[in-house]
Simulated assay, not measured.
Amino acid sequence: MSKVKIVFFIDVLKKDFDGVSNTTNQIAYRLPRDLFDAIFITPLPPEDPEFPFPVYKCPSIDLPLYKQYKLALPKRMKGLEAKLDDFAPDIVHWSTPSALGWYAVNYAKKRKIPVATIYHTHFTSYVEYFLRFVPGIDKISPPIARRLLSLYKDCSLVLAPTESMSDYLKVLRVNAANIRVWGRGVNQHLFSPAFRDDAFFSPYGVISEKKILFVSRLVSYKSTDSLIELYKLLGKGHKLIITGDGPDMERLQSKMPKAVFTGKLTGEALSRVFASADVFVFPSVTETFGNVILEAMASGLPVVAARAGGPADIIEDGITGFLAEPGNTKEMYDRIKALLADDELHARIREKAIYYASQQNWDVLCQRLFDYYKDLATITS
Score class of each variant (00 low, 15 high):
residue 152 Y to F: 13
residue 44 L to T: 08
residue 165 M to H: 11
residue 108 A to P: 04
residue 100 L to D: 01
residue 127 V to W: 09
residue 89 P to M: 05
residue 86 D to H: 10
residue 136 G to P: 11
residue 107 Y to S: 04
residue 174 V to M: 02
residue 79 G to E: 02
residue 173 R to W: 08
residue 127 V to H: 09
residue 59 P to L: 01
residue 94 W to M: 00
residue 89 P to F: 03
residue 103 Y to M: 05
residue 70 K to W: 01
residue 88 A to H: 08
residue 40 F to S: 00
residue 70 K to F: 01
residue 67 K to I: 04
residue 45 P to H: 08
residue 97 P to V: 07
residue 130 F to I: 10
residue 132 R to V: 12
residue 166 S to V: 04
residue 113 I to W: 06
residue 143 P to D: 15
residue 112 K to L: 12
residue 61 I to F: 06
residue 143 P to H: 14
residue 172 L to Y: 12
residue 57 K to M: 01
residue 50 E to R: 10
residue 145 A to L: 12
residue 46 P to E: 00
residue 109 K to M: 01
residue 95 S to E: 06
residue 97 P to I: 06
residue 95 S to T: 14
residue 130 F to C: 09
residue 120 H to N: 09
residue 59 P to Y: 03
residue 109 K to R: 08
residue 153 K to V: 12
residue 51 F to N: 02
residue 150 S to Q: 14
residue 156 S to E: 15
residue 77 M to Q: 07
residue 84 L to N: 02
residue 90 D to L: 04
residue 99 A to S: 10
residue 58 C to E: 06
residue 117 T to A: 08
residue 83 K to I: 02
residue 46 P to M: 03
residue 68 Q to C: 06
residue 117 T to C: 06
residue 137 I to D: 14
residue 166 S to T: 11
residue 91 I to E: 03
residue 57 K to V: 06
residue 46 P to S: 05
residue 58 C to S: 11
residue 160 A to C: 14
residue 76 R to C: 00
residue 108 A to I: 10
residue 121 T to G: 03
residue 65 L to V: 07
residue 57 K to P: 00
residue 106 N to K: 11
residue 158 V to L: 10
residue 174 V to L: 03
residue 76 R to Y: 02
residue 62 D to Y: 12
residue 165 M to K: 07
residue 79 G to Y: 06
residue 107 Y to W: 09
residue 155 C to G: 12
residue 145 A to R: 15
residue 138 D to T: 14
residue 95 S to V: 09
